[in-house]
């Protein structure tokens, strides 16, 4: 790792997210949809999303000490921001996940 410079936080870097849900509830589906939508908006073509069902993989949830679901964790680039909830306020979720340009207010009517 030492011979590589730190990855620059440009929009071109690949963002990886892991989202934990608990079962296939409406809330789980809404959270997943919201995450995909905000990634498509802010990180078109440079993101990966992994969905983990804590009821199916509790050991993984234990490892990451997850309590509340849904929760999204930014796996890369670090730091590993976490946001709990169904992400119904997408621009706020994007801001809390540290996505590029997410600080700007989203224009009225924008499909976020």
């Amino acid at each position: 790792m030492e011979d590589q410079p730190p990855a620059a936080l440009t929009p071109m870097a690949t963002y990886a997210f892991r989202m934990y849900v608990a079962g296939r509830s409406r809330r789980s589906q809404a959270a997943e949809e919201n995450l995909r939508a905000l990634c498509d908006f802010y990180l078109p073509g440079c993101h990966e999303i992994e969905i983990v069902d804590a009821t199916e993989q509790p050991a993984l949830a234990e490892e990451e000490r997850i309590l509340a679901t849904p929760i999204v964790i930014r796996k890369s680039p670090l730091p590993g921001y976490r946001v709990i909830g169904d992400l119904s306020d997408r621009s706020r979720a994007a801001f809390l996940l540290g996505l590029p340009d997410s600080g700007r207010p989203s224009p009225e009517g924008q499909r976020l």
Binding site: A22, A68, S88, D89, L96
Partner: peptide, 14 residues
């Protein structure tokens, strides 16, 4: 951990 929207403690229960 900040929260956005609704959630539950499903992972803890699991």
């Amino acid at each position: 951990t900040p929260t956005v929207g609704t959630y539950d403690l499903g992972a803890l229960t699991a």
